[in-house]
Design a protein around this nucleic acid. Structure first.
Lengths: 121, 121
DNA sequence: TACGATTTTCGACGAACGACGAAATTGGTG
DNA sequence: CACCAATTTCGTCGTTCGTCGAAAATCGTA
C-alpha cells in the first residue's frame, strides 16, 4: 500500500500570487482568527487543537479553513493531527509589510482591551 | 437664529484612541469601501455623491457610515452636501503605518484584477 | 478489532452584511 | 412657497458570518 492513501480531500491553499487582499483583511477582522495568527507568529508550527481559544472544535475548524483559504496559513496533515503555520514568506512576497504592520497594530491594542472586561475571546 | 440649528443628529466619530482595529480591517475588506478610501487618499476632501462607485445612493450612504464609525474617515456637513476626508493623522497616530501598508498592498493588486474581467466594483 | 483522540463535515440558528427602493430630511434657488 | 438636488433613514431581501451540536472520518493503540 502506498504511504498515503488520501481519503480526505487535499487541503486547498491559494498560490502566493493568488492571495486576495480582501480575503486577508476579512480573515484578520475576526478576534479569534487574529489570536490564532498572533500565536502562530511566535511558533513555526502548531497543532489545531492546542490553541487557547475557547470556541467549539467545529467552530475552530471553520476559522482554520477561512485562514487557510485566505492564504494566511498553511496546513499539513500528520496522522491524526493537522499542523498550521503562518505563510510569512508568501505573505511578505505578496503584500510586503502587511502582516507585520497589522500585527503590530493589534499589539498596540493589547493591554487596553483586556483591562476593561474582555477576558477571553 | 443660531448659525446651526441641527435637526439631524450630530455625526458620530470615534476618538483617535478608540479606533478599533477589527472595525478598520472589516471596513477595508469591502471593495467599494476600499475604492472610497483609495480615492480619498489622493484628495483632502470630497462630497459623497461624487465618488465613481456604482451602487445605489442609499448603499453608498451605508458604506460611508461604516467608514466613519470605524474611524477611517471623517464627515463634515455643508449645506446639502456631506464632505468626507480620510483621517490620516489620527490613523497614523493610532496604528502607525497601517493605512499606508494596506493601500500599498491594494495598489499591488490593481492592474491584475481589472485585466481579467472585473471591470467595475 | 474495538476504543479513544483529533479534526472535519453537516445541518441549524440567529445576527450581521451588502444591496435596493421608497420615503423623508435638508437646504439652495426659481 | 414650490421645486430640485444631495443625502439619510427605513424596511426588506437574500447572503454570508460565527457559533454550536451531532455525526462521520482518520489514525494510533490497547
Amino acid at each position: 500500500m502506498p504511504r498515503s492513501t488520501r481519503r480526505r480531500p487535499a487541503l486547498m491553499h491559494p498560490a502566493t500570487e493568488e492571495i486576495d487582499l480582501f480575503d486577508v483583511l476579512h480573515a484578520l477582522s475576526d478576534p479569534t482568527r487574529m489570536t490564532i495568527v498572533r500565536i502562530l507568529r511566535t511558533e513555526p508550527e502548531r497543532a489545531c487543537g492546542t490553541f487557547p481559544v475557547d470556541v467549539a472544535p467545529s467552530t475552530l475548524s471553520h476559522h482554520f479553513k477561512v485562514l487557510r483559504e485566505s492564504g494566511l496559513i498553511s496546513q499539513r496533515e500528520e496522522a491524526n493531527r493537522r499542523f498550521s503555520a503562518l505563510r510569512t514568506v508568501d505573505l511578505e512576497r505578496r503584500f510586503p509589510g502587511l502582516l507585520d504592520t497589522v500585527l503590530a497594530a493589534h499589539a498596540l491594542t493589547e493591554g487596553a482591551e483586556g483591562a476593561e472586561g474582555a477576558e477571553a475571546r
